[in-house]
């Protein structure tokens, strides 16, 4: 592995007097699963929002290395990060298009390609054959991801009426339909039962193996974090307090203190 896929350098995000992310630096490798953990309010989601263009960082650099090109995410406009740098994300509270079907959700993820194929609507409106082919290919890609998520039968169901676990999986499928080089998952296991979390692990391992995209993961569920992560970054109060393999991090005294509290010296 020569260059890291994503390198975060001295990232700082301030909201008025509050510093949510304070001088954080770490790397995420190509084809690796990097977990970001930390207690509530540690700045994990803020970090994600900076990465995916929802916030503009106060200072620091975010470099994404893809296809021999360096994208400077901290300078890019929101939707361009997904479109050009190919960073996809899911949300802590699921953000599907609830009134549309699962299949439509997956097609919207392929919007920019389809838009071009439809000649920016001018050709598509007259049923141009090139657009029909592109649409069929897009549906085929959606079908592939539905099958991967074990929900091929539910493609025509409204996304909002799917069971909770299926909604989580559909959101990941939707992110994957944008063909990302970096997939950012914000607590994908939240609200899942142990069996569903185990399935999620398999899905994430499969995505890494077969699609070679890097995964950045915020998670509280330690069975997910410890089971599949290649690297773990630990944040507390906006600062990075530890980084390493899951085994290293779980032994780190700083991490234990952050999660379990200070041991009383003269107990």
């Amino acid at each position: 592995m020569s260059e890291p896929l994503l390198s975060v350098r001295n990232l700082t995000m301030r909201f008025g007097g509050l510093t949510a992310v304070d001088d954080v630096s770490f790397d995420a490798d190509q084809g690796a699963i990097t977990a970001v953990i930390g207690p509530n309010g540690a700045g994990k989601t803020t970090l994600f929002n900076c990465l995916t263009g929802f916030y503009r960082p106060s200072s620091g650099a975010l470099h994404l290395q893809a296809a021999g090109h360096v994208h400077r995410l901290e300078r890019m406009q929101g939707h361009r990060i997904a479109r050009r740098a190919r960073v996809a994300r899911t949300f802590q509270n699921i953000r599907l298009f609830p009134g549309m079907t699962a299949l439509e959700n997956l097609l919207i993820a392929q919007h920019n390609d389809l838009m071009r194929a439809s000649g920016f609507t001018f050709l598509g409106i007259f049923g141009w054959p090139g657009y029909r082919r592109a649409e069929a290919a897009a549906v085929e890609k959606a079908r592939y991801w539905l099958a991967r998520m074990g929900m091929e039968e539910r493609g025509d169901d409204l996304a909002g009426q799917l069971p909770y676990g299926a909604q989580r999986r559909l959101e990941i499928a939707r992110a994957m339909c944008t063909e990302p080089v970096l997939l950012c998952l914000d607590e994908p296991a939240a609200g899942l039962n142990p069996r569903e979390s185990a399935e999620l692990n398999q899905i994430l391992l499969l995505i890494r193996r077969e699609h070679g995209c890097g995964i950045l993961l915020i998670e509280h569920d330690m069975s997910v974090v410890m089971g599949i992560s290649d690297r773990v970054v630990v944040l507390e109060y906006g600062r990075k307090i530890a980084e390493g393999t899951p085994a290293e991090v779980s032994r780190d005294p700083n991490v234990i203190r952050a999660y379990l509290g200070e041991e009383e010296s003269a107990a």
Partner: peptide, 24 residues
């Protein structure tokens, strides 16, 4: 067409649209 689906997606969730690379 994609443009119509994007309109509906915008009605459903603007933030999600942006995360999928749709220019709002």
């Amino acid at each position: 067409l994609p443009v119509g689906r994007a309109w509906e997606a915008l009605r459903e969730d603007e933030i999600a649209c942006q995360s999928l690379g749709i220019n709002r």
